[in-house]
Design a protein around this nucleic acid. Sequence first.
DNA 1: GTCCATGTTCTTTA
DNA 2: CTAAAGAACATGGA
Length: 274
Amino acid sequence: MPELPEVETVVRTLRPRLCGARIGAVSVAHGGVVRSSPGSLDRLLSDSRIVRVRRRGKRIEMDLDDGRVLRVHLGMTGRLRLEPAGAPAAAHTHVVWHIDCGHGRLELRFIDPRRIGGVWLLATETAARDDLGPEACDIGAAALAQRLGRTRRAIKTALLDQSLIAGLGNIYADEALHAAGIDPRTPADRLSSATVARLAKAIRRILRLAIRHGGSTVRDYVDGDGRPGSFQKLHRVYGRAGRPCRRCRATIRRIVLGGRSAHYCPACQRRRGG
DNA sequence: GTCCATGTTCTTTA
DNA sequence: CTAAAGAACATGGA
């Protein structure tokens, strides 16, 4: 569910109420989603204050006043919701942080049916270790070319590698490649610099547009207040296999690349980048 | 029953 | 050695 635009939207809905808030008790219903090193589970029951809420790639990170960082990754089906204390809990609510802030008593809840997402409590130095590529929403042509030039994988697969570029997932990688007119099977290191420049621009434009629409809700995604996004209505290829391309009317195709589905228009997206 | 799913990480293969 | 492909994780919807 959550790629950069969805995670950014969640962060924007949580930030005003969580910044400066104090974390009281923490209840963990399913320890499997807590992926910090052993022994840190009880330290999640910290009585600390949140000083900043930010996004890095698809990660949500809350800086605590003692320097530690609470990191949440939503995986495929994860949700982070801020609800009034005592409100009924959704199924698969695994961790609840009890929050005191200017808005009264709230509960921050991590919900994840598939439990692919997770929660980490990290030391300052651990959280600062930067293993992700540049933010996809800001990526420049030169940075993207430098990253893509070092792999021969299909461009679609390379765009999903968070260590090359951070924030793209299956939806926005497909949408950006369509917008840039690039066949998703093209080896990443074979794109011309003009094509890479066009791709960088398409990535920035699509992601910023998606953020303005509150992200895409295909199945599960909702923001911190439970509201779905609307960008799915503007998808041009993702989930549209067998339907006509919105630009040229050719039939959208679905193939499998790197174990993930890839959707593209065989007419708009030809090798060489037409 | 089958297939598929917005992601990451570990293992296996080339 | 490295890069790439594949499996695994767990649940639910079509």
